[in-house]
């Protein structure tokens, strides 16, 4: 009996510690995000302009070098979607509607989401690994003691880069996905190109693309903030960098899905 209560007490204590840790992380992330917004959007108007060179470098790293994987993934998603829906729609005699289905699901959901997930793995991990290494080798401390703000110096360029590039990549992913569906539709599935095009245009609305872009902006903030936070909290050695890089990818993927759910339901109920 005593053992049993001891057990519960121990567990409750542990649960409390976990919860406390969780809230500490949340507030830490909040403060870092606030500092980043301040450095990125407010400080430039108070006589401390952002430097363009690091932003360009990051844009190239984040955006240009991610195009291949984003194109490939979204193109294949379009192809797969067309194949998967074709067999079902054919039974209903509505094969022409493959285009509509592919177009709507890509622009509304899969384009922004898949791009964000790919980028969380590719760029979020790189953010944590890069800045985490700087943290363990005292480079971030060196910045601070040189009276340079690490947030402004390291996070702001990455923040701006991904905030601009993720929506751009999302648009390209949308186009590639639709192209993938179209190519399969008119070749393997034998749908008339004109009909495919007409059905797609009928079904898709510009609002879907815009909501997709709003979402991808939010995903961008999640990726860069989780990536940076996970790097900035590293204490200790190299093994921590690896550990936090993994955590960073996992956490940002989960947060992306949650944010997606929230925004989708918001758009669903509001509009």
């Amino acid at each position: 009996m005593r053992f049993f209560f001891g057990f519960i007490g121990h567990n409750a204590f542990q649960a409390w510690a976990v919860a406390e840790n969780f809230f500490k992380e949340i507030s830490g992330m909040y403060y870092l995000t606030r500092a980043t917004f301040y450095c990125t959007f407010i400080e430039p108007f108070r006589g401390k302009p952002n430097k363009w060179k690091p932003i360009w470098t990051q844009m190239e790293e984040v955006g240009v070098k991610s195009t291949t994987i984003v194109f490939l993934v979204s193109f294949l998603i379009g192809v797969i979607l067309a194949f998967q829906t074709a067999s079902q729609l054919a039974r209903l005699g509505a094969l022409d509607f493959v285009g509509a289905l592919v177009g709507v699901s890509i622009t509304r959901e899969l384009g922004p989401l898949m791009t964000a997930l790919v980028m969380a793995g590719r760029v979020g991990a790189a953010f944590t690994a890069e800045m985490g290494t700087m943290k363990v080798s005292d480079e971030i401390l060196a910045l601070e003691t040189m009276a340079l703000n690490p947030v402004k110096f390291l996070i702001t360029p990455r923040f701006i880069a991904i905030l601009v590039m993720l929506p751009c990549l999302t648009i390209m992913a949308d186009l590639m996905g639709i192209l993938g569906g179209f190519l399969i539709g008119i070749t393997t599935l034998g749908i008339d190109p004109i009909a495919y095009y007409d059905r797609s245009i009928e079904a898709m609305v510009i609002k879907d693309v815009v909501t997709g872009l709003i979402k991808s902006g939010v995903f961008a903030v999640i990726i860069v903030m989780v990536g940076s936070y996970m790097a900035f909290i590293i204490e200790g050695g190299a093994e921590k960098v690896g550990e936090n890089t993994r955590t960073s990818v996992v956490v940002s993927m989960i947060l992306i899905i949650i944010a997606d759910l929230i925004f989708t339901s918001l758009f669903f109920f509001v509009t």
Partner: peptide, 26 residues
């Protein structure tokens, strides 16, 4: 902090920058 300089045990040079850019940074 602008009044002092510090030399870290590991050097803490910025690995992505050249020597010139490191010294020129401040």
């Amino acid at each position: 902090r602008k009044k002092f300089g510090i030399m870290f045990q590991s050097g803490a040079l910025f690995n992505s920058l050249t020597v010139e850019d490191n010294v020129a940074l401040p």
